[in-house]
Design a binder for these strands. Structure first.
Lengths: 193, 193
DNA sequence: GTCTATAAGCGGATAGAC
DNA sequence: GTCTATCCGCTTATAGAC
């Protein structure tokens, strides 16, 4: 009917999911709402994905790929070791500023919190996000902290997670700025060792 | 019937709620499970509390009071300004080690994440937890950071929230230790100002 | 008056029939 | 793509026991 119908139903479903699930809440979003927004019937959703959980998992996988790409850009753009380590906060500010991917705090942590018994498929994506963070931060910490790279990476990961939780809490006011400051202090502390 | 029946139904419900809701997940715990564990009928729950949400809210209020008391003890036991500020991490380790209050990560943040549209009653408790943290950390930061007390308090709150999120993520391994280190580095950075 | 037991209404997730 | 049926979770109503 409408022009939008030219876009495949699967794509429309994923876009609706990304737009609504993590802003309104995964469990608070009825399947019917996704169907309405994607202008798709229930049968189509269950043909393409099999379940609401599987659609959530696929939407999360898309987010993870997008987030990885944004972070990449900010690492490449940084021109010294410290800025490359702290780029994760600039990338986060950029990703959250993009209205195409709204989120109350963090899609991956929210999924883990909202769906504790969820399909392995879903917890795998949070594990993937955590592995990406731990791995990259560990490598980026090496030139700054040498033998203490693992400690610094742990600290930056925790500051990053704290910034995300800050959005859920509504405090502090500018969680990303505070997280960046914390990570900076940690980096300075280790470079003095 | 059994001896346990001597304890009022309302108390048994609150104890069952505290035991199960935040470990299994608030939305993943059916009312029936709470009724079974408390050996109480549905009518009793709805007479005493009015709704599942209201029971959740009351269980959260009890948690907040308990947490405040534990934190109090650790602040009083500390014998210098730095340890008083970092006592929040020792209190967290102690509270989490108490098997009477199991929790996957944080009851308040989990409630906010799982129940985004929840009754004001529930979001009020997270706001109360956040206000308690912000207020106390701000006062405890004063002797260490003077005019920058607010910045230090923001940083410690973020490190604290990050430690909690670390449990949800399963990384870093010992989130409380890492959070404490991060807060310590922040305190040192401000005391050099 | 407090509590139990049972049933039933309602809405969302899912699946299959057409 | 629509419609219908099933299952499950929250809630309320009813009737009765201590």
């Amino acid at each position: 009917m409408t022009t939008a119908q030219r876009i495949p139903a699967r794509t429309r479903l994923l876009e609706a999911a990304d737009r609504v699930l993590f802003e309104r809440g995964i469990r608070d979003t009825p399947v019917d709402e996704l169907l309405r927004q994607a202008e798709v019937s229930a049968a189509t959703l269950y043909t393409h994905f099999g379940s609401k959980d599987a659609l959530v998992a696929e939407a999360l996988r898309v987010r993870l790929a997008d987030w990885r790409a944004v972070w990449d850009q900010y690492i490449v753009a940084a021109d010294n070791d410290l800025d490359r380590l702290l780029a994760v906060f600039d990338a986060l500010a950029s990703y959250r500023g993009d209205r195409r991917h709204p989120s109350r705090w963090c899609a991956f942590l929210a999924a883990a919190s909202e769906l504790p018994e969820a399909a392995e498929e879903i917890s795998d994506v949070l594990a993937g996000d955590t592995a990406l963070l731990a791995d990259r931060l560990s490598h980026l910490s090496r030139p700054l902290a040498g033998g203490h790279a693992q400690d610094l990476a742990d600290e930056v990961l925790l500051a990053y997670s704290g910034a995300l939780a800050g959005f859920l809490r509504g405090s502090p006011r500018s969680p990303i700025d505070v997280g960046r400051r914390l990570a900076h202090a940690a980096a300075r502390a280790h470079s003095r060792d």
